[in-house]
Amino acid sequence: MGKVVLVTGVARRLGDRYAAELARCPGVDRVIGVDAGDPEPSPGYTFLRLDLRRPTVARVIAEHEVDTVVHLDVSAVGPGGRAAVKERNVIGTMQLLGACQKAPGVRRLVVKSTTGVYGSAPRDPAVFGERMQPKNLPRGGFAKDATEAEGYVRGFARRRPDCAVTMLRFANILGPAGDTPLGEYFTLPVLPTVLGHDPRLQFVHEDDVIEVLRLAAVPQDDDRTRAGTFNVAGEGVLLLSQCARRLGRPTVPLLAPALGLVAALARQVRVADISPEHLQLLTHGRVVDTAQLRDGFGYQPRYTTAEAFAEFAAAQSTGLLPPARMAAVTDRLGRLLGAEHPSAKRS
């Protein structure tokens, strides 16, 4: 018999695409996609409208004899405002794990998390490994939700040692659609930045996200259990200034309080959902080590950070200046400023 997989969060584009591709995998009999929203599901899997905050999920797992659960419904955005999003992320995860714990047939759990659990602080290490703790725990927003959800997942793993548990901490996901909060930021005609900061950023292409989730859910021939916690990001880093040049968009350096006001205005008029945790990322950046993904999990992302961003940039409208022209202008300005700086003259 093949696997019966329950996938949560299929109302969003990534979840719908993943459920449809998983249904075509050899060894998978059925895929049941659940969400409280009302999507237009792709053909190939069964969609059930289900709110994870309700105990109904236990009945669905039992009725369909689910043996694998892929939890994608921990999201930074959603209908109903921040309070409703937090309740879906945290309470929904608790209810799902409770249902899985009572279902002896569930033998594999895959959870989508975020590298945001490491936070972004001025005294952070240059590179975060999976065993490292953040200098400052996230105090709110999606990162705090993910931190709480991870705590519940670790508790579940202790109570159900017979169930293989895989937690995937994804860097900022980008692709041609770019339907993420950071993707919305990069679509602004002018990019507000923090004065005096040029953070290092990592991205992961949505195709790599789909493939990593597939490998975690479906048994492979190499006998890897793929259980554990893994950072997932494309190789290399990009500076925020490099991202702006590749998009052909000018930057406007602002003091941190002023940028906070701009972000609040953007959220209010629904131009971009720039949260306080994104402001921290745009100030201090974040880089994670992916050695465990390659060596322990057995996957090398096909797209580097730069290539993932290039795919995203190619799908966007041209900025105020063509990217090549923008790069030439900013590089020339940098050389002129460097030549006029007193320290440059002394050298």
Rank of each mutant, 00 (worst) to 15 (best):
G37N: 03
T147I: 02
L254G: 02
F203Y: 14
Q220G: 15
V153G: 02
P323M: 03
L50G: 04
A171V: 01
D67M: 07
L137P: 11
E87T: 15
T115I: 14
L281P: 00
D179A: 13
L213W: 06
I274W: 05
L320G: 12
G296C: 07
L109K: 01
A256M: 12
R169Q: 09
P134F: 07
D145F: 00
P134K: 07
R139D: 13
A58S: 13
A227M: 10
Q268R: 13
P189H: 08
V110N: 09
E21F: 10
A58F: 02
Q316E: 08
A263L: 08
G155N: 13
D223C: 08
V165M: 05
A149S: 14
I32E: 06
R24M: 09
A264V: 05
T147C: 15
D331A: 14
T180G: 08
A258K: 11
I91K: 01
E307D: 12
L320Y: 12
A177G: 06
T187S: 13
H71L: 12
G228M: 09
P301L: 07
R24N: 06
R17F: 07
G296K: 03
A344Q: 12
K112A: 15
R158G: 02
V271E: 11
A256K: 13
R226V: 03
P39S: 10
E311K: 15
G296Q: 08
R226L: 09
E63G: 09
T46S: 04
T147A: 15
D223N: 13
A36R: 15
R335I: 01
L261H: 13
V212M: 12
G248T: 08
L259V: 03
G260E: 09
F128S: 08
G141W: 11
R169L: 12
G260D: 11
G33C: 02
G44T: 09
A23K: 03
E235K: 07
R286I: 06
S42V: 00
G140T: 10
R82Q: 06
V85L: 11
V232N: 03
R108I: 01
R17T: 02
T166K: 02
K345R: 14
V204P: 05
R53N: 09
K86T: 15
G44H: 10
L259S: 06
L52N: 05
A103H: 02
A164V: 13
P134D: 04
P134N: 06
A171D: 04
V117C: 00
S343G: 00
R302H: 14
H205R: 10
R154G: 04
G2E: 14
T193G: 00
A216L: 01
G175H: 00
T318K: 15
E40N: 14
R53S: 04
